[in-house]
Structure formats: C-alpha cells, structure tokens
Design a protein around this nucleic acid. Sequence first.
DNA 1: GCAAAAGTGTTGGGAGTACACCCATGA
DNA 2: TCATGGGTGTACTCCCAACACTTTTGC
Lengths: 234, 234
Amino acid sequence: VVYTSQYPIFFVTADIAVFSIIEDEFRVLLVRRSAEPESNKWALPGGFVDPDEDLVNAAKRELEEEAGAKFGGVLLEQLRSYGAPNRDPRGRVISVAYVGVLPTPSDPTAGSDAAEARWQPVDRLLADSSGLAFDHDLIVRDAVERVRSKLEYTTLATAFVGSEFTLSQLRRVYEAVWGAQFDAGNFQRKMKRTEDFIEPTGNAQPAPGGRGRPAATFRARQHGVMPLLNPITR
Amino acid sequence: VVYTSQYPIFFVTADIAVFSIIEDEFRVLLVRRSAEPESNKWALPGGFVDPDEDLVNAAKRELEEEAGAKFGGVLLEQLRSYGAPNRDPRGRVISVAYVGVLPTPSDPTAGSDAAEARWQPVDRLLADSSGLAFDHDLIVRDAVERVRSKLEYTTLATAFVGSEFTLSQLRRVYEAVWGAQFDAGNFQRKMKRTEDFIEPTGNAQPAPGGRGRPAATFRARQHGVMPLLNPITR
DNA sequence: GCAAAAGTGTTGGGAGTACACCCATGA
DNA sequence: TCATGGGTGTACTCCCAACACTTTTGC
C-alpha cells in the first residue's frame, strides 16, 4: 500500500497490562511473542490499531486475540502513551497503553488457553527487571503504580472481585496489591462506613476451607471506577 | 513525500494544557488557530510531532512556538492520548496531551506576546462549554481534573509558585485551583507538618500591599512532583 | 469442645476544624 | 493607634489503629 502525506507518519499500537488476583497474588497477564521483532520474549498483549478503530476497542480486541480468551468483565482505562523515537525497530511506533483489571477467574487457567500466555506475579516481575519486549517493563511499572494508587482513592478494588463478594475477599485484594496486612475488623468497619462504595446483598457465603462463620456478601454500589471521599489507608 | 507501509498510518500531535495562577485566578493558556481546519477557533497550543522527536520535547517546542514565548520553568507531564477516529478532518490523528504548570509570570502578559494567545480563566471556560477546536474541550476538562487531584496528594502546588515563596502564596494556589477558602493558620501548620514538602529559606518577604507582617519564605524540598504521605484537604 | 473465620466493642492517639488571640509592619 | 496580613494556641471532634472479645460455623 502506498500513502502520501504532508505530515510525519506514525504507527500506533494498543498494549494492555491486565491485572488480576490469582491464588492471593497480584498478577499481570503476559504473552510470548511469536513474531519478530523481539521474538520469543514475553510481552504485554497488544498490537496495531486498525485505521477506523477506537483506541479502547483496539485494546479490547488485541487483548482477546492475544490471550485467546474472552474477557467480558474486564475494566479498561487508558494509562498513557509511550513514544520514544527508537522504542520499536519497525518504525516510529506510539504505544497507547491501557490498564485492565479482571475479577479473579473462576477457572484459574483462563487466559492461558493460548499456548503462550501466563499470569505472572507482579512482585517477581518488578524484582527481576524482567527483560520484557520493547519498553513493556516501563509500562508495567507505571501500570502497577496506577493500580496501587487508584486502590486508595477510588472504588477500583471491586473490579478485582466478582459482582457479589465478601469483605474478606475485598480485603485480600488490598493485601495482594499492596503487599500489606490489614486488621480484618477495622477493614470491615472502614468499608461499611465509606459512602457509596459497597452495599449488602442480604446473602452469605461459607467461609473458605469450610471452617469459620459464613460471611455476608456485598456488591459494588456503583458501576465503574468512582472516586472515594476518604482514602483507604494501610 | 511518498511512504509505503504494512501497518495503518497515523499522524500524531502533542497538545498542551498549561495552567498558571494569574491575578489569583486559575487559568489555562489558549491560542487562536490561524489555519484550517477549525480556523479562528480558540485551541490548546500544539502541533504535529516531528519524525525523530520525543513526545515531551514536541510538547515543549509547540508550546513555545505557538505561544511565542520561552517557558523555561514549565513543568510538563503527560495526561493521556485522544484518538477517536473522526476527531480531526485531516486524517487519523492521535493527540498526545500534556498538562503543564507555570509559576505565576512576573510579567503577566508573557505568553500573550503572540498576537492571539490568552490566559483564560478555567471556571469560565468550563461553564461555557466553550467551543474550543477539535476535542480540546474534553482535554481541558481532563487536564483540570488531573491538576485538581494532583494538588491533593503530590507536591504539585509548588510548581505554581516561584522557587522561593510564602505560605500565603502557596495557599492562594490551592484556593484558586479548588475554588475554596482555607483557614490561613491551619494551612500554615499543615504545610509545615507535612514531611518532604517545603523547607524554610531563612528569608522574609514584605506582605502584599505593604501593610502587614512580613512572611517567611520557603522553597520546595524536592524537585519535580513527588507523592505526599498525607493528602492536603479542604 | 476446639479451631477458624466473621464481626463488634473499646480505648488511646493523631490530624482536621473552628476560632480566639498575639506579632510585625506601614500609614 | 489602627488596619492588615502573618503566625500561634486551644479545644473539640472524628477517624484510625490496636487488640480484646463475641458469634457462627465445621470437625
């Protein structure tokens, strides 16, 4: 195909850092690249945006194509763009990065249906400086920071759990993402006191492992990510 | 010029929402477009990124070219990208938007050196739904929100004042950006108590208008924008 | 009964708010 | 001496953190 233009030409990709809590660990979805450049390296799912495609739709499409699974419940929010002149050998490529959050999958292998996809624990990834393709290292780092800070002052945590959840499940989200321990009792009061965050469903769920008092379940009071009046701390 | 490509082609602009406090008002810099499309409309300064130019450098260059002034002390941080398929009639254009913060200019007309540039009060702009070119309305809205929230939990406020400032000047930043009144005494204690934010210079400055006790001056303890441990409220 | 997890009570400390009050300067 | 803005003192409230304690379940 041949184009003419009076302006400099760029290519644009959408790359997605999708996070979830799996086995009580904060993890990010990686895929192994099968084509050049950076073939065989682990990378964030992503790819070139189509000519008439909205950016967020491109992110969603690439995510499902590359991970080989449907992510109906995924929450996507734009992070920022990465456009250093030599970040990609194929030319001047701008990556519009998205942060995604997925509820803990009931099937813990979902997203690993693709031969080469895996949920990588974030702590290990950041510690190893990892050798991801392109500048995906940097993108993951920024995405992790975004998620950690949005947990504090928005309702983002509910995107990590199903539509009906116990306060312990919600607490484990904060503990996994922040790598910190919470006092279960205080956490409970804090969540209930926070306006416009959660509401009781009236149902209960048996404690994990069978032993223990069943927990009341809650649902998010609002859809999407909303700011909180008072931050969640610790 | 003729290019060939196997990937969809995009053009990329850098657009900047620069804010400052002028006459105790929270304002944003606008320029009047002289060329098609959207000729004669007010818009954010910005333009096409050069083929081998870093995004943030493009933002800085366009800002100075379009506003016709040097902005040495400007702080630039990427906001996000805007890439709806039909946002620009010239083709598929991705705008990488930046938020800028400039200390109150000693010459209040700086940036208006260009025939058609002006510092527009943010409140009026948001109230009027404004009719800026392209989707710059939306960009300004997002940029304002970013600045307002970053004031709360980072050291961003110091970017609005000079390198040496009084606590009243800093308070007026919060008051102008948030449109709220602060108790001067409590504000003072809060700033001094907040770790790693400001430090005394040992100097003093006469009160504005001459009357009143001179104010001690402070400087930012850190360069750039750093997260605060405790948010600034009210 | 015992262990485990859910959930409540209680208490002490620290931060925010309101507002009174003192300080330093120019006119 | 007065007006003005800078800066401190004080008391009240609310939230948070720690931790003891009660409740409800399975074994």
